[in-house]
Design a protein around this nucleic acid. Sequence first.
DNA 1: GCAAGGTC
Length: 862
Amino acid sequence: MKTVFMVAEKPSLAQSIAKILSRGSMSSHKGLNGACSVHEYMGTFAGQPVRFKMTSVCGHVMTLDFLGKYNKWDKVDPAELFSQAPTEKKEANPKLNMVKFLQVEGRGCDYIVLWLDCDKEGENICFEVLDAVLPVMNKVHSSEKTVFRARFSSITDTDICNAMACLGEPDHNEALSVDARQELDLRIGCAFTRFQTKYFQGKYGDLDSSLISFGPCQTPTLGFCVERHDKIQSFKPETYWVLQAKVNAEKDKSLLLDWDRVRVFDREIAQMFLNMTKLEKEAQVESTSKKEKAKQRPLALNTVEMLRVASSALGMGPQHAMQTAERLYTQGYISYPRTETTHYPENFDLKGSLRQQANHPYWADTVKQLLTEGINRPRKGHDAGDHPPITPMRSATEEELGGDAWRLYEYITRHFIATVSHDCKYLQSTISFRIGPELFTCSGKTVISPGFTEIMPWQSIPLEESLPTCQRGDTFSVGEVKMLEKQTSPPDYLTEAELITLMEKHGIGTDASIPVHINNICQRNYVSVESGRRLKPTNLGIVLVHGYYKIDAELVLPTIRSAVEKQLNLIAQGRADYRQVLGHTLDVFKRKFHYFVDSIAGMDELMEVSFSPLAATGKPLSRCGKCHRFMKYIQAKPSRLHCSHCDETYTLPQNGTIKLYKELRCPLDDFELVLWSSGSRGKSYPLCPYCYNHPPFRDMKKGMGCNECTHPTCQHSLSMLGIGQCVECESGILVLDPTSGPKWKVACNKCNVVAHCFENAHRVRVSADTCNACEAALLDVDFNKAKSPLPGDETQHTGCVFCDPVFQELVELKHAASCHPMHRGGPGRRQGRGRARGRRPPGKPNPRRPKDKMSALAAYFV
DNA sequence: GCAAGGTC
């Protein structure tokens, strides 16, 4: 029997589609990557009985990058990135092993049906899947078609079954337009980012961003924030005048009337109007009106609207809101949270979803009422063909979810109930008055039926006192008419919600990437999030955007994306050649880049005003090995040492503290050593600023401290202080931290393992002798007589930390506190130890590696 | 160390 292999864009869709097509009779199992599932069922295909195998990828299988050697920032001129630097496709997420997974599952299949999302990215992923799978599928006669594309516009039974009934072919042109987009984004983004970063970091010491990035989405996003900032800065308040009248209604209540002219900007004219009205005793009713109006129930919820409300009403940033929503989704509380669609599919079980909420402590009454009196048909929204709107999938309580998860869930659920509620109906009453020659108006709203505002109370119409009943010709006595002086006020900084709206309007980013772009400009220190989630650009952000305005405003305008996208659409439609469009667009941006480089002084003039040159930044710390003058330590990210005499900069490890190390010098280059430490509970090691940037030996890499240095005789080197192989990681060596006394530490030079040992010893040295049993270096430990824990009042002992019974009580294994437990072997990974022991990377010096006694030793350490 | 686009 033949097999039909089918692939969707994500696991959730593979499951829904398989369920529909198999009418629920499928068997499922997890794939080898743990993320994707495979759903199998029997059926017919092209008139024959077949086995169907439905699975998915997780978004893109591949990603584009430069060949490795072009990723060395100090060796490659960014201008080369426009054409010379070759690119390659790499697996987008190596951990998922997607290519291998597709090949394992697709091997020996006869047909393939591509169920990727029906947009350009989906079309591109089709070909990524084909590249992986076609080579391992069964070969058939060349005349028979084996590759099919299913096109669907919603995940409903009819749509999915229709798609299966009329399969087409994947669209190569659409896929190519995405290839072009990827290459353009990569080459342009990286070239500008590297150039800017290197140029400004080499000149200024207090830029407080380790990366000065540029991108066709993030830069216009920043542009919006700075544009608003400029408006605020250039705002000149204007004085204006308004007339305000008060008339007396029944029972010593008075009505405040608005002037029909609203305001005037000339004081004398306002005064003239005041003179014409202030002596009038009566206000005559000119007309009255009562209109029934409706405030519409909301459209079904999509991602962007959810993010807007999360930011403006819940105070949750888009990135955080998205993460919270994803967790709610994977736990089954809400439907898929990434969708552009605001229209419920025709067969969507609105009542069923509503029924789930019928006993909820917070909104049971509203829901029950809707169920008994009948729900309102939701408004017609936009169907983007991706996923249904975001809705609750089951009832949940505040205790169950807690915190932000609950607040987001509550909003989603209230929004859902609102979409099937009635519009809010209210009466808008207006009375128009004449006082002398001038017209004034008074209006008020009274609620007829609250409708959806009952479940979304923040949307409700504020209670107002009702207006008096009157008719044309009635008169009221005038209480007073006065002239008020006011000033126009500047706009406030852009709120996140407004920024999302702007991005959506200009096509910057997608529902999934908008939070990422906003997060980027925050993390790069271009904007800061102020109260009310308003985005205030920093000096750096302002200087960058003003610099682009000066040099080439197109670089920051929102049209930079849409202009390129227009070109890409030509490829997608088959009306332009992929190579030609790519070549032409790259050429345009290459020229822009060269012009930008040549004109960088224009941006630099702005930088000078806000930032200090390297030489004027930082504190003198350690001596340069070349000129023997003090170098300055620049603490701002990226932290580094700068020698203003030699005009050289030496980068240092980030995220820790740097101190001078006893004025000791590196025997190789005479630079004074500095001591890096990760905090009081963490680890520390000395490093030579020069060697750290220019590795002295072939087996060393950039970024290594003395604890990894293979110098054979230097007293700070790994060779002299190394003890033995790490108990957890594969390539690390435990090194004595000579500065750690009296709470002595031995720390791995690769991972975060730290052993605390020999507390209160006044001297600990690594002996030249090694342990007979495990080859680890012996430690020579001296205690003060009063504090010695050694048996029999001994003050000195030499032995192996792993094997010596006397040392057994004196060693304790810990993890350095400030290292990321996520990325390093934490306690949870310990079971795996012992595996691959004794293996070590070729060329790695490992002077005192214990034999394979590690399982015993590890037990000893714990 | 860079971009933007998928999604886990």
